[in-house]
Write a protein that binds this DNA or RNA. Sequence first.
DNA 1: ATAATTGCAAAGTCTTTGCAGTTTG
DNA 2: CAAACTGCAAAGACTTTGCAATTAT
Lengths: 157, 157
Amino acid sequence: MRDLKAERILERLRESGGRVTSARRLIVEAMLAGGDHHLTAADIVEIVRRDDPVFHESTVYRTLERLTELGIVRPVQLVPGATVFHLVENAHRHNHLVCDDCGTIIEARVDLLDVLASDVARNHRFTLQTEAAPLHGRCEACQHADAASNRAADPAP
Amino acid sequence: MRDLKAERILERLRESGGRVTSARRLIVEAMLAGGDHHLTAADIVEIVRRDDPVFHESTVYRTLERLTELGIVRPVQLVPGATVFHLVENAHRHNHLVCDDCGTIIEARVDLLDVLASDVARNHRFTLQTEAAPLHGRCEACQHADAASNRAADPAP
DNA sequence: ATAATTGCAAAGTCTTTGCAGTTTG
DNA sequence: CAAACTGCAAAGACTTTGCAATTAT
């Protein structure tokens, strides 16, 4: 099952003139195994090195770039300093709610964005990339934390 | 007018125990002069150096960090590799539509997000930071470009 | 065979940090 | 004066690139 998915993806790579190498196979398998986790390049290196200890970072970046061009992978900037990669094919459609205070990432159903997407299309002729898009804000815990500290700092009413 | 705004901001800094230095004054003035432009740390360095040639990058980062803590400035990650900073006070409420193909940034009215924000609050107990939150997708030009190249590559119907 | 890919090492960008000297309140 | 800030230089995270050796087709 998992292998079939990997092979199907690798076949697209081959069809586009690319070569299927063991490194690339391991990268794709790592991403499939990761499910919907948001893997950084470093994550992938770590996973692949379990099978191939000499696997090098530059290979990840070059392969991810290639896969992105082919539309197989989508890079998403959830937080500063760490681009994460989604396997488009594997991901259920979802969004990310990123808490800017604590960094927690909540996955939300993508259809939340449907109304917004059509508004944006109409008003700005802009096609929203709704899948995997990061939305920023504050999670419940951080809102409470903040309210609590405000209360402590300013013990008025 | 402009000076008053700067002084008001600097006063908040002073009230919080910070010191108002000429470097910080120049940083704030640079951001005010930038209006709603999205200034990167490097942009600010460049502007400030016109008045103070020895002004150093580390000072920008430290000052922006401080101003962010005070809620005076908001960092936004529009594209990978370049955090931009908004002066909260100065910005009219807006969003950014970021074209992932060509990097164009369109400013959109923030109330587009109102419906989404209340949905997210209800469904996920998450408070969207609607202002200055970047939305990703493709601008009109890039959609056309893509359609054209598809037509060229696959001259079917 | 030959074009694509890899490992390696070096460099590049953006940002952070430690420290000693300077400035602000 | 004491605490905060600055310049400087060094380092850190993440990513890119040139090149010779290797590998897929």
